[in-house]
Design a protein around this nucleic acid. Structure first.
Lengths: 342, 342
DNA sequence: CTGAAAGCGCTTACAG
DNA sequence: CTGAAAGCGCTTACAG
């Protein structure tokens, strides 16, 4: 696979490489018959020889690689977050590819509180900028910024006045709590991680805190089913002591919602009918099976697009503002948290 | 963000750029006190100035970008295949990053039977090779190969003697069929798309064909529930007429398995207890809720790793073999397809 | 061991 | 409009 260069075409066409470049970029005026003919010959040669410009050479001249990296936490290979990461990436790519940028994936880890990037991106100047997504530890912020210069923080724990897209999940917890009160439930059951590690994504604690705040003003009690991960048969008994018509289950992640449904099912109980269920988050594949689940959601694909736009802004007007933005969650009514008729 | 170059360091150290390059690459012998001292000075400067080599310049010399693209079908933004694509990508990246390559994502579409790539990767020489995954239309094969030169086909419909990793899903259908017979079920219910479009992934028809073949030798009847996608309430009635202790449901995709479970649940039926259920495929996030589901599976992360290894092989020994390989699915016993005690 | 020279493929700026 | 010159940042090959 030897690629053909501008010089190859120039030689065969009997002109200078600059002329070839001009013809192929459309910069040349083609007014005289002779120049039109020559231009056609050049284009024909380019086609025949399957010419495509060399990105590296272009990059050297422009001092721009036109490559953007998406930094995903190593934990994103775990099933619970894999989906979100991918939709972020697709959204980012959607905007970037239209702007002539290529989107690369870089795995980021934390080892002994130190940034650990095995990718060549850590050794060489490869990217014009980097979008960090999800549960990347805040501690790595300075290292990442000094390594890559241009960084956009997309739904991470990093919360600055600029260059961040942040979810305000406190509101999610509050809104869910208020709705539970309004609809006449007597108890709420939080299903999700209880004491997440300090490096965990802030949304977990935020949601719980918001829920707690909202319920504090009422006489709705708040219990929790901790350490939910993979289904285990003993969960059946735990759900048994909680699920009932007066209970609204608040599922932190879609995984928790599904485990609840499974637990209920093993007891012959259905969400929305025999107990209330509301999920703090949603993913498309769970939604295809449970389109009627009551939940809050936000569009990760679209969030990815926003982050990419921010990045492009930052690249073009390098010392400009680029203010942080909130990512808003939407309430989806569904049918699993009906008003209780007492 | 002006990056510092080899020349910057050379100037400040009072030596030639070549010497800096040699010191930083460790090529230089440091035997005399004077050269040791100078080397330390150079390293110190590099550190202070945050020097990292320019990938584009390196690429020009080596005639290698050290970038590999992963081609995903545009349909991979749909929830049913998004997960698999992401695990493929992570697996690919796992091997590639260790070899100094960067993994980029490129969306591929088919418009009027023509290859449609918006990415800059279609205009410029950006990649040393490309790994095409999933449901990329076979029709685009020639276009993709002539555009990118080095192509590995990972779990696509492309089936050649070389450069392909192929799933042999006929066996999956057969094995499931045989097991259903052996375990004493009277009827099988195929849940999945029935007449997939010719561009759909071959696994769908293969599995069904295999199942059909296996059951043909027995008196187990085979029904199907077509056009499964998102849950709709009328599905309840459809499942009602099929689910029962003599029935083994064969779910084509995890989505189908979950819809079946939901359908059964609405009738008060549980898989493995009130009817048999076996899934032709699995994903980690479904498995976390249903670790006990009987299914066939194959490891997409690992398949991605294999594909990346093939790619590296092909790059190094360019005219060598690189024979195609089969991706084998594993049987996972679970508890939802018990032997019927008659 | 060291540095001057040339080149990777392209672009920008400048003479003709 | 056209092409010779110089340069992007690095590496390879060669004299000193």
């Amino acid at each position: 696979m030897t690629t053909t260069t501008l010089n190859d075409i120039a030689r065969q066409a009997g002109v200078s490489p600059q002329t070839v470049a001009r013809v192929l970029s459309g910069t040349n005026k083609e007014n005289r018959p002779s120049s039109i003919e020559r231009a056609q010959k050049i284009r024909e040669l380019a086609r025949q020889l399957n010419y495509r410009p060399n990105a590296a050479a272009r990059a050297m001249n422009n001092r721009q690689t036109q490559n953007i990296g998406v930094l995903v936490a190593a934990s994103h290979s775990d099933p619970f977050t894999a989906n979100s990461a991918y939709f972020f990436i697709l959204g980012v790519n959607d905007v970037l590819e239209a702007a002539g940028y290529i989107t690369s994936v870089v795995r980021v880890d934390e080892v002994e509180h130190q940034l650990d990037i095995r990718s060549r991106a850590a050794q060489e100047v490869v990217f014009d900028g980097v979008i960090a997504v999800g549960s990347i530890p805040v501690r790595l912020r300075d290292d990442i910024e000094s390594m890559f210069g241009n960084v956009i923080w997309l739904d991470t724990n990093v919360d600055l006045a600029r260059r961040c897209l942040i979810r305000h999940e406190l509101n999610v917890g509050r809104m869910i709590g208020q709705t539970i009160i309004e609809r006449g439930y007597k108890r709420a059951l939080w299903v999700g991680r209880m004491n997440p590690s300090p490096t965990a994504h802030h949304s977990h604690q935020d949601r719980y805190a918001g829920l707690q705040q909202a319920l504090a003003t009422s006489d709705v009690t708040l219990d929790h089913l901790p350490s939910i991960g993979q289904w285990q048969d003993h969960m059946r008994e735990e759900f048994k002591s909680y699920l009932g018509p007066e209970t609204a289950v608040v599922a932190n992640e879609t995984n928790c919602a599904q485990l609840t449904i499974r637990g209920g099912m093993s007891l012959g109980l259905q969400p929305g009918q025999d107990y209330g269920l509301v999920a703090c988050d949603m993913t498309p594949n769970v939604l295809s099976v449970w389109p009627d689940i009551t939940h809050m959601t936000y569009d990760r694909y679209d969030a990815g697009r926003q982050a990419a736009k921010m990045m492009l802004e930052q690249i073009s007007e390098s010392d400009q503002a680029c203010h942080s933005q909130q990512l808003e969650s939407q309430w989806c009514e569904g049918r699993t948290l009906p008003t209780r008729h007492i």
